[in-house]
Design a protein around this nucleic acid. Structure first.
Lengths: 269, 269
DNA sequence: CGACGTGTTGATCTCTCTCAATTAGAGTGG
DNA sequence: CCACTCTAATTGAGAGAGATCAACACGTCG
């Protein structure tokens, strides 16, 4: 129930010498991955866990606001976001920046670029964050050794695309108010799904208004004004780094979200 | 050399009774797939071809402007665009439409929605088109029976996402002129890569200005005015359903495209 | 305490949208 | 062969959402 208690069946931190453990030392073993405890994730078999474990190289921790991958960087490894928030972005040569998507625990990073290729987008943290690092070949190995996991990755990748699709719809066709409503709801749902201790008391919300602006194709000033407008109207509230949706109904109507902006259950660790 | 001669080694239309041929009759066999002839695609082994062939259910032909998948439709099968142009789109309840991406021969359709799920976007043809239809399970079967093909699909899916990323950057941060320049270049490159008989005489270009507008988050009127402006400036020309890039250099500079908007070589049939 | 990063607000400015009208082509039916 | 209809492309004019420019308030931090 409580996500702070990661282990499921055996001793929490006592990692057995898995045949395949290579370069990960102070790191948490996959079997103790905190994400496993969440109902959001499909439970992989022990075999699959061992496979993932064997492909994992190490962990990497970054403070808030640091770069995980620089735009144009070559040979970036494959990552999994274990903990914290981050975002993918692209910039034009004159500095205009577009955030492509926000990344939460469990998200994959770097499937996009083909090996040897330059990263098509940068990745930066929003909070202190923790990543699992995989060798570039891991993607292929995973497919080769476990078609099931490979299939899951395809599905995850497709799901990730559908989120970008949603953003594109927003940025292309929604007004500033609608975009913001839509973003807040979607992020709220995703974040809430990750914190079992959820409830009506909001979620931790590390974005600055600049991030919201860059994620929605708006200017900072206009984002601020729109945000204030919605807040004064009682739809939501952001304070002390937390986001509260005060009137989800109105917010959803404004965003014109189908159903509820479902955070589809995700397979894989 | 000439794409109009699809077969590679044996008799063109004489299809041997592959053990797995199920419901495809007047259809072209995978081994004779015209796409195979293009340098753009990686040559799959005979075994892989047979596998794809065995999963293929039938073909479907649509005239220009018809719907392949309706938004919200459930249980849509998996498709491959064999011939022609199409596009994926989403609409808001009041009718505003955003085209998410344009589809050309070789593109996959429908990997996004999980089985049983409602399609997150619609797909419509721009020209008369031809699709290969696969059973929904094909995706899994492909992964199971050929990790290599599975891997390719993941890569294709990721590549497709990176194209949406590019569009999002455009729509979110580029001016109308820049968006149009960027779209024209990208489509030109993709289409040119598919017609070996390319050359400087442009490409067949089936989009109406409304499609361009919906693909770039612009209004029809403003799209028209911007298009005319670029045309008068000698950057490009669209006439009789063909697009000519008269000044690629200036166009690319305007679009602020890195390198040249590379149409990365794609694996798989 | 000054430098910064982030959030606010007011005052223009302008790019893009909306409304309206017209032209040109492709079909259709008489 | 011609009126009639429809779709796509054009252009002009006015309106407006959102951008840009400028200040200022606050809290954190070296």
């Amino acid at each position: 129930m409580d996500a702070s208690t990661p282990a499921t069946d055996d001793a929490p931190e006592q990692v057995p010498a898995a045949a395949s453990r290579a370069a990960n030392d102070g790191d948490t073993a996959c079997r103790n991955c905190p994400l496993r405890a969440l109902p959001l994730f499909i439970e992989p078999s022990g075999e699959e866990l061992a496979l993932v474990q064997s492909l994992k190289r190490r962990e990497r921790r970054l403070a808030a606001g640091e770069a995980l991958i620089h735009e144009g960087q070559t040979d970036a490894p494959l990552y999994t976001l274990l903990q914290g928030w981050a975002f993918r972005y692209k910039t034009l040569s004159d500095g205009r920046r577009q955030i492509l998507s926000f990344l939460l625990a469990g998200d994959f990073i770097g499937v996009q670029q083909k090996m040897g290729d330059a990263a098509a987008h940068g990745v930066e943290t929003l909070t202190d964050a923790q990543f699992c690092v995989f060798h570039r070949d891991a993607l292929w190995e995973l497919h080769r050794q476990s078609p099931m996991m490979g299939f899951n990755i395809t599905w995850l990748t497709a799901h990730e695309e559908s989120m970008v699709d949603d953003t594109l719809l927003s940025v292309g066709r929604r007004s500033a108010e609608e975009r913001i409503a839509s973003l807040l709801i979607l992020l709220f749902k995703r974040a809430a799904a990750l914190q079992p201790d959820a409830g009506a008391d909001g979620i931790a919300f590390p974005l600055t208004q600049q991030h919201i602006a860059d994620g929605l194709g708006l200017s900072l000033v206009h984002t601020n004004k729109t945000l204030r407008k919605l807040e004064r109207r009682g739809l939501h509230q952001i304070s002390n780094g937390r986001l509260y949706l005060r009137d989800l109904k109105s917010m959803a109507r404004l965003a014109d979200l189908y159903g509820d902006g479902r955070p589809a259950p995700r397979p894989l660790v």
